[in-house]
Amino acid sequence: MWLLLPFVILPIVEIALFIQVGGLIGVLPTILLVILSSILGVSMMRRQGTNAMRDVQRAMQEFRDPSAPLAHGALIMLAGGLLVVPGLFTSAIGLLLLIPAVRELAMRWMGRRVRVAGSGFRNRDAEFMNDVPPGFGYGRGRRGDGVIDGEYSVQDDPPAPIREGLTDERDGSSRGKSGWTRH
C-alpha cells in the first residue's frame, strides 16, 4: 500500500504545479522549462556520472572503501533521472540532489535507516573447493601466492591430406557445408 502512494500523489502534485506555474509565467515558458530540465538532466548524468565513476575507480585503486563514491554516483543518476522525467516537482528534487551537500545529507539520512545483517561469499561448488590442494588460492580461507602450476604441449596441424578431406567444397553442392561430413 505504501509503495503505491507516491504513484498516486506525485502526478497530482505535478499537475497542480503545472497549473500554478503555467498561470504565472504562461504555457510556452512552462513547457520550455520542462524541456530544458530534461536536457540539463541528460547532460548532468553524463558529466557527473563519469566523474563519480572515476571517483569509484580511484577509491578502488587506493584500496579505500568505495561505498561513498558509489552512493554519490547512484544519487547523481537518480537526480539526472528525476530531471529527465517531465515535471516541475521531480526536476526540483533532481536539482537539489545535484548539490553535494544535499547528497551528503541524504546519504546520512539513509545510512541511519540501513542495517547490514552480514556479508560473505559462498560458492555453489563447496565440495570442489574443499578438494583444492593447499596453496592454490581457494577454499577454507587459505590465500595462495597467485601462481598456478600447469603443463602444456604443442600440437602441430594434421598433415595436408587429412585437412583437405574435412570440407565439402570440391563437389559444388550447397548441402552439408559444416566441414564435418563427406559425401
Rank of each mutant, 00 (worst) to 15 (best):
2 W>K: 09
2 W>Y: 12
6 P>T: 06
13 V>K: 12
17 L>A: 14
20 Q>C: 13
21 V>N: 09
22 G>V: 01
24 L>H: 13
24 L>M: 14
27 V>M: 14
27 V>H: 13
29 P>R: 03
32 L>T: 11
35 I>A: 03
37 S>I: 01
42 V>Q: 12
44 M>L: 06
44 M>P: 03
46 R>E: 11
47 R>D: 09
50 T>F: 12
50 T>V: 10
51 N>C: 11
52 A>D: 01
54 R>A: 09
55 D>L: 07
56 V>I: 06
56 V>K: 02
59 A>E: 04
59 A>N: 03
60 M>S: 02
60 M>C: 00
61 Q>C: 04
62 E>F: 05
62 E>L: 07
64 R>N: 10
64 R>D: 10
64 R>F: 11
67 S>I: 04
68 A>W: 05
69 P>F: 00
70 L>Y: 03
70 L>T: 04
71 A>R: 00
72 H>L: 00
73 G>A: 00
73 G>L: 01
74 A>H: 00
74 A>N: 06
77 M>N: 00
79 A>V: 00
80 G>A: 01
81 G>Y: 03
84 V>T: 05
87 G>I: 08
88 L>V: 04
88 L>D: 02
91 S>P: 03
92 A>R: 06
95 L>D: 02
96 L>I: 05
98 L>R: 01
98 L>V: 00
102 V>R: 04
102 V>G: 02
104 E>R: 11
108 R>H: 08
108 R>W: 07
111 G>F: 01
115 R>L: 07
116 V>K: 03
117 A>I: 08
118 G>N: 07
118 G>V: 06
118 G>K: 05
120 G>Y: 01
121 F>S: 07
122 R>W: 07
130 N>E: 13
130 N>F: 15
131 D>K: 11
131 D>W: 13
131 D>H: 10
133 P>C: 08
136 F>S: 13
136 F>D: 10
137 G>Q: 08
139 G>Y: 09
140 R>A: 11
141 G>L: 08
143 R>D: 11
143 R>T: 11
144 G>I: 07
145 D>P: 05
147 V>G: 12
148 I>V: 09
158 P>L: 11
160 A>L: 15
160 A>M: 14
168 D>T: 15
169 E>Y: 13
169 E>R: 14
169 E>C: 14
170 R>N: 15
171 D>V: 13
172 G>E: 13
173 S>E: 13
174 S>Q: 15
175 R>A: 11
175 R>E: 09
180 W>K: 10
181 T>F: 07
182 R>P: 06
182 R>L: 05
182 R>M: 03
